[in-house]
Design a protein around this nucleic acid. Structure first.
Lengths: 226, 226
DNA sequence: ACTACAATACTACCATGGTAGTTATACTAG
DNA sequence: CTAGTATAACTACCATGGTAGTATTGTAGT
Protein backbone atom coordinates (compact mmCIF):
# COMPACT_ATOMS: atom_id res chain seq x y z
CA UNK A 1 0.00 0.00 0.00
CA UNK A 2 1.08 3.52 -0.72
CA UNK A 3 2.34 4.90 2.57
CA UNK A 4 3.75 8.30 1.65
CA UNK A 5 5.11 9.08 -1.70
CA UNK A 6 5.49 12.84 -1.57
CA UNK A 7 8.32 14.12 0.56
CA UNK A 8 7.53 16.91 2.91
CA UNK A 9 9.72 19.83 2.00
CA UNK A 10 11.23 20.57 5.39
CA UNK A 11 12.32 17.49 7.28
CA UNK A 12 10.38 14.54 8.53
CA UNK A 13 6.70 14.20 9.23
CA UNK A 14 7.53 14.01 12.90
CA UNK A 15 9.31 17.36 12.80
CA UNK A 16 6.41 18.89 10.92
CA UNK A 17 3.89 17.69 13.48
CA UNK A 18 6.10 18.80 16.35
CA UNK A 19 6.49 22.30 14.96
CA UNK A 20 2.81 22.58 14.18
CA UNK A 21 1.73 21.55 17.65
CA UNK A 22 4.36 23.65 19.37
CA UNK A 23 3.31 26.73 17.45
CA UNK A 24 -0.32 26.15 18.29
CA UNK A 25 0.51 25.76 21.96
CA UNK A 26 2.73 28.82 22.08
CA UNK A 27 0.17 30.93 20.19
CA UNK A 28 -2.50 29.76 22.61
CA UNK A 29 -4.54 28.39 19.73
CA UNK A 30 -4.33 25.27 21.81
CA UNK A 31 -5.32 26.62 25.19
CA UNK A 32 -3.91 25.26 28.43
CA UNK A 33 -6.09 22.46 29.69
CA UNK A 34 -7.26 21.40 26.24
CA UNK A 35 -7.55 17.64 25.90
CA UNK A 36 -5.99 16.23 22.76
CA UNK A 37 -5.31 12.69 21.57
CA UNK A 38 -3.03 10.93 19.14
CA UNK A 39 -5.96 9.80 17.07
CA UNK A 40 -7.64 13.19 16.88
CA UNK A 41 -4.45 15.03 15.84
CA UNK A 42 -3.44 12.34 13.37
CA UNK A 43 -6.81 12.64 11.67
CA UNK A 44 -6.92 16.43 11.49
CA UNK A 45 -3.33 16.63 10.24
CA UNK A 46 -3.73 13.62 7.95
CA UNK A 47 -0.83 11.55 9.18
CA UNK A 48 -0.55 8.31 11.06
CA UNK A 49 -0.48 8.14 14.83
CA UNK A 50 3.22 7.31 15.12
CA UNK A 51 4.77 10.71 14.34
CA UNK A 52 2.03 12.38 16.36
CA UNK A 53 2.80 10.18 19.31
CA UNK A 54 6.51 10.89 19.03
CA UNK A 55 5.81 14.62 18.94
CA UNK A 56 3.64 14.24 22.04
CA UNK A 57 6.52 12.60 23.87
CA UNK A 58 8.91 15.38 22.96
CA UNK A 59 6.44 18.09 23.94
CA UNK A 60 5.81 16.32 27.23
CA UNK A 61 9.56 16.24 27.78
CA UNK A 62 9.54 20.00 27.29
CA UNK A 63 6.62 20.31 29.72
CA UNK A 64 4.21 21.71 27.16
CA UNK A 65 2.03 18.60 27.34
CA UNK A 66 1.08 16.32 30.17
CA UNK A 67 0.58 12.70 29.24
CA UNK A 68 -1.47 10.51 31.54
CA UNK A 69 -0.77 6.92 30.48
CA UNK A 70 -3.73 5.02 29.06
CA UNK A 71 -5.88 7.99 29.91
CA UNK A 72 -5.28 11.19 28.02
CA UNK A 73 -3.06 14.09 27.08
CA UNK A 74 -3.59 17.69 28.09
CA UNK A 75 -1.94 20.98 27.11
CA UNK A 76 -0.01 22.11 30.17
CA UNK A 77 -1.37 24.93 32.21
CA UNK A 78 0.94 27.88 32.66
CA UNK A 79 2.89 27.11 35.78
CA UNK A 80 4.02 30.20 37.68
CA UNK A 81 6.82 28.27 39.35
CA UNK A 82 8.18 27.43 35.92
CA UNK A 83 7.95 31.05 34.85
CA UNK A 84 9.80 32.21 37.94
CA UNK A 85 12.48 29.55 37.54
CA UNK A 86 12.92 30.41 33.88
CA UNK A 87 13.45 34.02 34.78
CA UNK A 88 16.01 33.08 37.41
CA UNK A 89 18.05 30.95 35.04
CA UNK A 90 17.83 33.42 32.24
CA UNK A 91 18.99 36.34 34.31
CA UNK A 92 22.03 34.53 35.66
CA UNK A 93 23.08 33.21 32.28
CA UNK A 94 22.43 36.28 30.16
CA UNK A 95 24.32 38.49 32.56
CA UNK A 96 27.27 36.15 32.29
CA UNK A 97 26.96 35.97 28.52
CA UNK A 98 26.91 39.69 27.92
CA UNK A 99 29.97 40.01 30.10
CA UNK A 100 31.69 37.38 28.01
CA UNK A 101 30.62 39.18 24.86
CA UNK A 102 32.40 42.26 26.12
CA UNK A 103 35.65 40.36 26.32
CA UNK A 104 35.51 39.08 22.78
CA UNK A 105 32.90 38.84 20.10
CA UNK A 106 33.25 37.91 16.42
CA UNK A 107 33.16 40.80 13.98
CA UNK A 108 30.57 39.31 11.64
CA UNK A 109 28.13 38.65 14.47
CA UNK A 110 28.59 42.20 15.72
CA UNK A 111 27.42 43.22 12.30
CA UNK A 112 24.42 40.96 12.59
CA UNK A 113 23.55 42.65 15.87
CA UNK A 114 23.75 46.04 14.18
CA UNK A 115 21.38 45.06 11.40
CA UNK A 116 19.10 43.37 13.89
CA UNK A 117 18.77 46.55 15.94
CA UNK A 118 18.17 48.78 12.95
CA UNK A 119 15.52 46.37 11.70
CA UNK A 120 13.92 46.66 15.11
CA UNK A 121 13.61 50.40 14.61
CA UNK A 122 11.94 49.84 11.27
CA UNK A 123 9.46 47.34 12.69
CA UNK A 124 8.67 49.65 15.56
CA UNK A 125 7.79 52.50 13.20
CA UNK A 126 5.53 50.25 11.19
CA UNK A 127 4.00 48.73 14.31
CA UNK A 128 5.01 45.25 13.21
CA UNK A 129 5.03 43.72 16.67
CA UNK A 130 5.07 40.14 15.53
CA UNK A 131 8.41 40.64 13.80
CA UNK A 132 9.65 42.73 16.69
CA UNK A 133 9.03 39.83 19.00
CA UNK A 134 11.12 37.57 16.82
CA UNK A 135 13.88 40.14 16.45
CA UNK A 136 14.05 40.40 20.22
CA UNK A 137 14.59 36.64 20.44
CA UNK A 138 17.15 36.80 17.66
CA UNK A 139 19.12 39.57 19.33
CA UNK A 140 19.67 37.47 22.42
CA UNK A 141 20.30 34.38 20.36
CA UNK A 142 23.12 36.10 18.48
CA UNK A 143 24.78 37.00 21.76
CA UNK A 144 24.90 33.32 22.71
CA UNK A 145 26.13 32.30 19.26
CA UNK A 146 28.96 34.81 19.47
CA UNK A 147 30.03 33.43 22.84
CA UNK A 148 29.94 29.88 21.51
CA UNK A 149 27.09 28.94 23.83
CA UNK A 150 24.41 27.78 21.46
CA UNK A 151 23.25 24.92 23.64
CA UNK A 152 22.81 27.30 26.55
CA UNK A 153 20.44 29.42 24.53
CA UNK A 154 18.44 26.34 23.59
CA UNK A 155 18.05 25.55 27.25
CA UNK A 156 16.81 29.03 27.96
CA UNK A 157 14.38 28.85 25.06
CA UNK A 158 12.90 25.74 26.57
CA UNK A 159 12.66 27.26 30.03
CA UNK A 160 11.05 30.35 28.54
CA UNK A 161 8.19 28.45 26.94
CA UNK A 162 5.75 28.96 29.80
CA UNK A 163 6.75 32.59 30.12
CA UNK A 164 6.34 33.26 26.41
CA UNK A 165 2.76 32.06 26.57
CA UNK A 166 2.14 34.76 29.15
CA UNK A 167 3.75 37.29 26.91
CA UNK A 168 1.34 36.13 24.22
CA UNK A 169 -1.54 36.62 26.64
CA UNK A 170 -0.64 40.23 27.12
CA UNK A 171 -0.35 40.48 23.37
CA UNK A 172 1.44 43.37 21.77
CA UNK A 173 -0.20 46.15 23.68
CA UNK A 174 1.59 46.19 26.95
CA UNK A 175 5.24 45.67 26.10
CA UNK A 176 7.43 48.72 26.25
CA UNK A 177 8.85 48.18 22.81
CA UNK A 178 10.67 51.50 22.53
CA UNK A 179 12.49 51.09 25.80
CA UNK A 180 13.37 47.56 24.82
CA UNK A 181 14.84 48.63 21.52
CA UNK A 182 16.90 51.43 23.01
CA UNK A 183 18.24 49.01 25.58
CA UNK A 184 19.27 46.61 22.84
CA UNK A 185 21.06 49.43 21.11
CA UNK A 186 22.79 50.48 24.32
CA UNK A 187 23.85 46.93 25.13
CA UNK A 188 25.38 46.66 21.68
CA UNK A 189 27.29 49.89 22.35
CA UNK A 190 28.67 48.58 25.64
CA UNK A 191 29.82 45.42 23.91
CA UNK A 192 31.66 47.42 21.29
CA UNK A 193 33.24 49.49 24.05
CA UNK A 194 34.01 46.30 25.95
CA UNK A 195 32.40 47.74 29.07
CA UNK A 196 31.41 44.52 30.82
CA UNK A 197 30.13 46.00 34.06
CA UNK A 198 27.74 48.45 32.49
CA UNK A 199 26.59 45.87 29.98
CA UNK A 200 25.76 43.38 32.72
CA UNK A 201 23.90 45.98 34.74
CA UNK A 202 21.85 47.04 31.77
CA UNK A 203 21.10 43.46 30.83
CA UNK A 204 19.67 42.89 34.28
CA UNK A 205 17.41 45.92 33.86
CA UNK A 206 16.52 44.79 30.38
CA UNK A 207 15.36 41.40 31.52
CA UNK A 208 13.27 42.98 34.26
CA UNK A 209 11.43 45.06 31.68
CA UNK A 210 8.87 42.33 31.19
CA UNK A 211 8.67 41.73 34.91
CA UNK A 212 5.03 42.62 35.34
CA UNK A 213 2.70 41.39 38.01
CA UNK A 214 1.93 37.80 37.33
CA UNK A 215 -0.72 37.35 39.96
CA UNK A 216 -3.09 39.97 38.61
CA UNK A 217 -2.71 38.32 35.22
CA UNK A 218 -3.52 35.01 36.82
CA UNK A 219 -6.73 36.48 38.20
CA UNK A 220 -7.55 37.91 34.80
CA UNK A 221 -7.14 34.60 32.98
CA UNK A 222 -7.60 31.97 35.69
CA UNK A 223 -8.42 29.26 33.16
CA UNK A 224 -4.89 29.34 31.74
CA UNK A 225 -3.08 28.73 34.99
CA UNK A 226 -2.45 25.75 37.16
CA UNK B 1 -1.75 -12.57 20.02
CA UNK B 2 -0.20 -12.17 23.44
CA UNK B 3 1.59 -8.85 23.37
CA UNK B 4 2.75 -8.35 26.96
CA UNK B 5 0.99 -9.87 29.87
CA UNK B 6 3.43 -9.26 32.69
CA UNK B 7 3.73 -5.71 33.87
CA UNK B 8 7.18 -4.40 34.36
CA UNK B 9 7.59 -3.39 37.96
CA UNK B 10 8.87 0.15 37.55
CA UNK B 11 7.04 2.13 34.93
CA UNK B 12 6.65 1.56 31.24
CA UNK B 13 8.74 -0.50 28.90
CA UNK B 14 9.90 2.70 27.28
CA UNK B 15 11.17 4.06 30.59
CA UNK B 16 12.96 0.80 31.29
CA UNK B 17 14.71 0.82 27.93
CA UNK B 18 15.60 4.49 28.30
CA UNK B 19 17.16 3.98 31.72
CA UNK B 20 19.02 0.89 30.58
CA UNK B 21 20.54 2.58 27.55
CA UNK B 22 21.35 5.77 29.42
CA UNK B 23 23.15 3.85 32.13
CA UNK B 24 25.14 1.89 29.57
CA UNK B 25 26.12 5.09 27.81
CA UNK B 26 27.09 6.90 31.01
CA UNK B 27 29.06 3.89 32.27
CA UNK B 28 30.85 3.72 28.94
CA UNK B 29 29.67 0.15 28.48
CA UNK B 30 28.35 1.59 25.25
CA UNK B 31 31.42 3.39 24.03
CA UNK B 32 31.22 6.62 22.04
CA UNK B 33 31.07 5.85 18.36
CA UNK B 34 29.35 2.50 18.81
CA UNK B 35 26.75 1.84 16.14
CA UNK B 36 23.44 0.57 17.45
CA UNK B 37 20.09 -0.02 15.83
CA UNK B 38 16.46 -0.29 16.88
CA UNK B 39 16.32 -3.88 15.73
CA UNK B 40 19.49 -4.97 17.50
CA UNK B 41 18.53 -3.42 20.85
CA UNK B 42 14.96 -4.66 20.66
CA UNK B 43 16.22 -8.19 20.16
CA UNK B 44 18.80 -8.16 22.92
CA UNK B 45 16.40 -6.57 25.40
CA UNK B 46 13.44 -8.67 24.21
CA UNK B 47 11.01 -5.89 23.48
CA UNK B 48 9.50 -4.51 20.33
CA UNK B 49 11.09 -1.79 18.29
CA UNK B 50 8.65 0.93 19.30
CA UNK B 51 9.79 1.63 22.87
CA UNK B 52 13.39 1.29 21.75
CA UNK B 53 12.84 3.81 19.02
CA UNK B 54 11.17 6.22 21.42
CA UNK B 55 14.08 5.92 23.82
CA UNK B 56 16.46 6.61 20.95
CA UNK B 57 14.60 9.80 20.18
CA UNK B 58 14.80 10.97 23.77
CA UNK B 59 18.48 10.15 24.06
CA UNK B 60 19.14 11.96 20.80
CA UNK B 61 17.30 14.95 22.23
CA UNK B 62 19.70 14.80 25.18
CA UNK B 63 22.65 14.54 22.78
CA UNK B 64 23.73 11.14 23.95
CA UNK B 65 22.85 9.54 20.61
CA UNK B 66 23.13 10.79 17.07
CA UNK B 67 20.47 9.56 14.70
CA UNK B 68 21.15 9.67 10.99
CA UNK B 69 17.79 9.19 9.26
CA UNK B 70 17.43 6.02 7.22
CA UNK B 71 21.07 5.31 7.91
CA UNK B 72 22.03 4.56 11.48
CA UNK B 73 22.39 5.57 15.09
CA UNK B 74 25.64 6.16 16.93
CA UNK B 75 26.55 6.77 20.56
CA UNK B 76 27.73 10.38 20.71
CA UNK B 77 31.40 11.05 21.06
CA UNK B 78 32.39 13.17 24.04
CA UNK B 79 32.23 16.71 22.76
CA UNK B 80 34.66 19.06 24.52
CA UNK B 81 32.55 22.06 23.56
CA UNK B 82 29.63 20.50 25.39
CA UNK B 83 31.78 19.82 28.42
CA UNK B 84 33.00 23.40 28.50
CA UNK B 85 29.51 24.79 28.05
CA UNK B 86 28.16 22.55 30.77
CA UNK B 87 30.82 23.80 33.13
CA UNK B 88 29.99 27.40 32.27
CA UNK B 89 26.29 27.00 32.94
CA UNK B 90 26.84 25.01 36.08
CA UNK B 91 29.21 27.52 37.60
CA UNK B 92 26.93 30.46 37.01
CA UNK B 93 23.85 28.70 38.33
CA UNK B 94 25.37 26.96 41.33
CA UNK B 95 27.00 30.15 42.53
CA UNK B 96 23.63 31.85 42.36
CA UNK B 97 21.92 28.94 44.08
CA UNK B 98 24.29 28.74 47.02
CA UNK B 99 23.86 32.45 47.53
CA UNK B 100 20.10 31.97 47.56
CA UNK B 101 20.48 29.12 50.00
CA UNK B 102 22.27 31.48 52.36
CA UNK B 103 19.24 33.75 52.40
CA UNK B 104 16.79 31.06 53.29
CA UNK B 105 16.80 27.30 53.32
CA UNK B 106 14.26 24.86 54.76
CA UNK B 107 15.20 23.27 58.07
CA UNK B 108 14.50 19.68 57.03
CA UNK B 109 16.67 19.95 53.94
CA UNK B 110 19.48 21.43 56.00
CA UNK B 111 19.26 18.25 58.03
CA UNK B 112 19.44 16.19 54.85
CA UNK B 113 22.61 18.04 53.92
CA UNK B 114 24.08 17.22 57.32
CA UNK B 115 23.41 13.51 56.99
CA UNK B 116 24.62 13.58 53.41
CA UNK B 117 27.97 15.04 54.43
CA UNK B 118 28.48 12.64 57.31
CA UNK B 119 27.65 9.74 55.03
CA UNK B 120 30.29 11.06 52.68
CA UNK B 121 32.87 10.76 55.46
CA UNK B 122 31.83 7.17 56.04
CA UNK B 123 32.09 6.28 52.38
CA UNK B 124 35.46 7.93 52.13
CA UNK B 125 36.85 5.84 54.98
CA UNK B 126 35.57 2.67 53.38
CA UNK B 127 36.78 3.71 49.94
CA UNK B 128 33.29 3.37 48.55
CA UNK B 129 33.80 5.72 45.64
CA UNK B 130 30.74 4.70 43.69
CA UNK B 131 28.48 5.84 46.52
CA UNK B 132 30.59 8.91 47.08
CA UNK B 133 30.00 9.89 43.51
CA UNK B 134 26.24 9.66 44.01
CA UNK B 135 26.38 11.51 47.32
CA UNK B 136 28.20 14.32 45.59
CA UNK B 137 25.40 14.58 43.06
CA UNK B 138 22.83 14.40 45.85
CA UNK B 139 24.47 17.19 47.84
CA UNK B 140 24.14 19.61 44.98
CA UNK B 141 20.67 18.36 44.16
CA UNK B 142 19.47 19.11 47.69
CA UNK B 143 20.70 22.68 47.35
CA UNK B 144 18.50 23.16 44.32
CA UNK B 145 15.54 21.49 45.97
CA UNK B 146 15.84 23.79 48.97
CA UNK B 147 15.84 26.84 46.70
CA UNK B 148 12.80 25.58 44.83
CA UNK B 149 14.77 25.17 41.61
CA UNK B 150 14.32 21.54 40.78
CA UNK B 151 13.96 22.06 37.06
CA UNK B 152 17.20 24.01 37.02
CA UNK B 153 19.05 21.06 38.47
CA UNK B 154 17.55 18.78 35.84
CA UNK B 155 18.90 21.08 33.17
CA UNK B 156 22.34 20.94 34.72
CA UNK B 157 22.18 17.19 34.96
CA UNK B 158 21.53 17.00 31.27
CA UNK B 159 24.32 19.42 30.42
CA UNK B 160 26.67 17.43 32.65
CA UNK B 161 26.15 14.18 30.79
CA UNK B 162 29.16 14.56 28.53
CA UNK B 163 31.31 15.70 31.43
CA UNK B 164 30.25 12.82 33.64
CA UNK B 165 31.45 10.36 31.03
CA UNK B 166 34.87 11.95 31.33
CA UNK B 167 34.71 11.63 35.06
CA UNK B 168 33.95 7.96 34.50
CA UNK B 169 37.00 7.72 32.24
CA UNK B 170 39.27 8.94 34.98
CA UNK B 171 37.55 6.51 37.31
CA UNK B 172 37.84 6.84 41.03
CA UNK B 173 41.59 7.21 41.24
CA UNK B 174 42.16 10.81 40.37
CA UNK B 175 39.43 12.72 42.12
CA UNK B 176 40.43 14.59 45.24
CA UNK B 177 37.71 13.08 47.34
CA UNK B 178 38.92 14.39 50.70
CA UNK B 179 39.15 17.97 49.53
CA UNK B 180 35.74 17.64 47.95
CA UNK B 181 34.15 16.40 51.15
CA UNK B 182 35.67 19.09 53.31
CA UNK B 183 34.44 21.69 50.85
CA UNK B 184 30.94 20.28 51.05
CA UNK B 185 31.14 20.51 54.82
CA UNK B 186 32.41 24.07 54.68
CA UNK B 187 29.72 25.13 52.21
CA UNK B 188 27.13 23.74 54.56
CA UNK B 189 28.63 25.76 57.39
CA UNK B 190 28.50 28.97 55.36
CA UNK B 191 24.86 28.33 54.56
CA UNK B 192 24.05 27.89 58.22
CA UNK B 193 25.91 31.11 58.99
CA UNK B 194 24.13 32.78 56.06
CA UNK B 195 27.46 33.97 54.68
CA UNK B 196 26.55 34.30 51.01
CA UNK B 197 29.78 35.81 49.75
CA UNK B 198 32.08 33.19 51.24
CA UNK B 199 29.73 30.44 50.16
CA UNK B 200 29.71 31.62 46.58
CA UNK B 201 33.48 31.95 46.50
CA UNK B 202 33.97 28.47 47.86
CA UNK B 203 31.43 27.04 45.47
CA UNK B 204 33.41 28.44 42.57
CA UNK B 205 36.57 26.79 43.90
CA UNK B 206 34.66 23.61 44.52
CA UNK B 207 33.43 23.36 40.95
CA UNK B 208 36.95 23.95 39.67
CA UNK B 209 38.21 20.98 41.63
CA UNK B 210 37.46 18.64 38.77
CA UNK B 211 38.87 21.10 36.31
CA UNK B 212 41.68 18.93 35.03
CA UNK B 213 43.32 19.12 31.67
CA UNK B 214 40.91 17.83 29.12
CA UNK B 215 43.28 17.85 26.19
CA UNK B 216 45.76 15.41 27.66
CA UNK B 217 42.83 13.15 28.41
CA UNK B 218 41.70 13.51 24.84
CA UNK B 219 45.12 12.36 23.67
CA UNK B 220 45.00 9.46 26.09
CA UNK B 221 41.62 8.24 24.85
CA UNK B 222 41.30 9.66 21.36
CA UNK B 223 38.69 7.10 20.36
CA UNK B 224 36.15 8.56 22.81
CA UNK B 225 36.25 12.11 21.54
CA UNK B 226 34.83 13.90 18.57
C1' DA C 1 44.13 -3.67 -10.55
C1' DC C 2 40.66 -0.18 -10.64
C1' DT C 3 36.52 2.28 -11.66
C1' DA C 4 31.24 2.43 -12.75
C1' DC C 5 27.31 0.66 -11.67
C1' DA C 6 23.80 -2.66 -10.40
C1' DA C 7 22.12 -5.62 -6.81
C1' DT C 8 21.67 -6.43 -2.04
C1' DA C 9 21.47 -5.61 2.82
C1' DC C 10 21.06 -2.76 5.93
C1' DT C 11 18.79 1.71 8.44
C1' DA C 12 15.24 4.75 10.58
C1' DC C 13 10.59 6.20 9.33
C1' DC C 14 5.77 5.72 9.06
C1' DA C 15 1.21 3.10 9.05
C1' DT C 16 -1.80 0.26 11.44
C1' DG C 17 -3.87 -3.25 14.44
C1' DG C 18 -4.34 -5.21 19.05
C1' DT C 19 -4.05 -4.67 24.32
C1' DA C 20 -4.30 -3.06 29.03
C1' DG C 21 -5.89 0.44 31.56
C1' DT C 22 -8.85 4.39 32.51
C1' DT C 23 -13.19 7.04 32.21
C1' DA C 24 -17.68 8.02 30.94
C1' DT C 25 -22.27 6.08 30.32
C1' DA C 26 -26.20 3.19 30.78
C1' DC C 27 -28.66 0.31 33.60
C1' DT C 28 -30.31 -1.84 37.77
C1' DA C 29 -31.46 -2.20 42.67
C1' DG C 30 -32.97 0.20 46.60
C1' DC D 1 -34.20 10.07 42.64
C1' DT D 2 -29.81 8.10 44.21
C1' DA D 3 -25.92 4.64 44.72
C1' DG D 4 -23.67 1.04 42.93
C1' DT D 5 -22.30 -1.71 39.11
C1' DA D 6 -21.87 -3.57 34.55
C1' DT D 7 -20.78 -2.05 29.97
C1' DA D 8 -19.22 0.55 26.35
C1' DA D 9 -16.11 4.07 24.65
C1' DC D 10 -12.43 6.12 25.00
C1' DT D 11 -6.93 6.59 25.98
C1' DA D 12 -1.83 5.83 25.42
C1' DC D 13 1.13 1.81 24.89
C1' DC D 14 3.29 -1.74 22.38
C1' DA D 15 3.96 -5.04 18.35
C1' DT D 16 4.79 -5.57 13.67
C1' DG D 17 4.91 -5.05 8.62
C1' DG D 18 5.97 -2.17 4.64
C1' DT D 19 8.67 1.85 2.52
C1' DA D 20 12.10 5.20 1.17
C1' DG D 21 16.56 6.20 1.70
C1' DT D 22 21.50 5.04 2.58
C1' DA D 23 25.62 2.12 2.63
C1' DT D 24 27.86 -1.93 1.27
C1' DT D 25 29.00 -5.51 -1.75
C1' DG D 26 29.42 -7.92 -5.96
C1' DT D 27 30.21 -7.63 -10.82
C1' DA D 28 31.25 -6.22 -15.41
C1' DG D 29 34.00 -3.31 -18.33
C1' DT D 30 38.34 -1.08 -19.20
Amino acid sequence: MNQKTQNRQSGSTREYIYQTLKNQIMNLELKPGTKISEKEISETLKVSRTPVRESFLRLAQEELLEIYPQSGTVVSYIHLDFVEEGRFVREKLERAIVKLACEQFPEDLLFQLETNVSTQHLCSEKGNYKNLFELDEEFHNILFIGCNKVRTWKIIEQLKSHFNRIRMLRLVSNDNWDIMISQHKQILEFIKQKDGDRAEKLMKEHLNLVNFDLHTLKQQYPEYFK
